[in-house]
């Protein structure tokens, strides 16, 4: 691991600095995209449970589109294709964003909306697993739709889906690596760059592999804590 403390060819620092920078981008991208995914995914999951109207159909189209196209292709869509389809002035403005923002912003939107589709399906499943009487009871007490979902149904649905949500949270860190294809120098890209500069493959990829393992461990711990805190007295875990 002495590699980490050797100077980089640009002379600006050590390889450790590269790793830290890569890690920072990975974490920023994952946590930012997770925030987007939770908000959008919850909204889409909720509208998919509406009894009728156009909204559930829009929700379905959203989920099917984002789930059935590979993440990498979606990355290229946001990065290469969208600026071409927008009015020329906006397209140019996007393309001329300073690095790394020119890569980070499309990657953030892409990973956020991609993960949102998967969370939406879980939220929908959680809501549909609740007894019908819960919505009726909320209605009978005079709650409007927004109050019913916010205060009664979603808190229960999220408790049901916490284990699958844990899995999704761990996945989003791994999926950030796809952003290297549009030029974001996150953790995996950093390993590749160090390897290209030093040909010390084992060390370069080894360090990054260990970091991913640690991230997975911490992510799991965080979700585990949340699961414990959300557990209701008198009910075995995994149920509402």
């Amino acid at each position: 691991m002495s590699l980490l403390f050797e100077a980089t060819p640009d002379g600006a620092g050590r390889y450790l600095d590269w790793i830290i920078s890569g890690l920072a981008w990975t974490l920023c991208l994952a946590l930012g995209a997770w925030t987007i995914a939770l908000v959008v995914g919850t909204l889409v999951g909720v509208i998919r449970t509406f009894p009728d109207g156009i909204l559930p159909r829009i929700g379905r189209v959203y989920v099917e589109t984002f789930r059935n196209i590979p993440l990498l292709v979606q990355m290229f869509f946001w990065y290469f294709v969208l600026p071409e389809l927008l009015p020329a002035r906006i397209g140019m403005a996007i393309k001329q964003m300073d690095p790394p923002w020119g890569s980070f912003v499309p990657a953030l939107i892409c990973l956020g909306l991609f993960t949102a589709a998967r969370i939406a399906e879980q939220v929908r499943a959680g809501l549909q697993a609740l007894p019908k009487g819960q919505a009726q009871a909320a209605n009978a007490l005079g709650f409007d739709a927004s109050g019913m979902y916010r205060l009664i149904l979603l808190p229960q649905a999220f408790r049901i889906i916490l284990p699958t949500l844990t899995n999704e949270f761990m996945t989003i860190f791994k999926n950030t690596s796809v952003a290297l294809t549009i030029g974001l120098v996150e953790l995996t890209a950093t390993a590749r760059e160090i390897n290209e500069n030093t040909f010390r493959t084992f060390e370069a990829f080894g360090v990054v592999t260990i970091i991913y393992l640690l991230i997975a461990l911490i992510a799991w711990q965080v979700m585990h804590r949340i699961e414990q805190a959300a557990r209701l007295p008198g009910i075995a875990s995994g149920k509402a």
Binding site: P131, G133, Q134, Q136, A137, N139, A140, L141, G142, F143, G147, L151, I152, P155, Q156, R159, L232, I235, A240
Partner: peptide, 30 residues
């Protein structure tokens, strides 16, 4: 809904709320 109260066959209490909150939530939010 304000005029009519309802009691269900399967109780339909809100399992994520305490007994006290079950009785206060509609008062404060509705």
């Amino acid at each position: 809904r304000r005029t009519v109260g309802m009691v269900f066959q399967n109780f339909e209490l809100f399992p994520h709320l305490t007994v006290l909150s079950n009785v206060t939530i509609a008062q404060t939010k509705v």
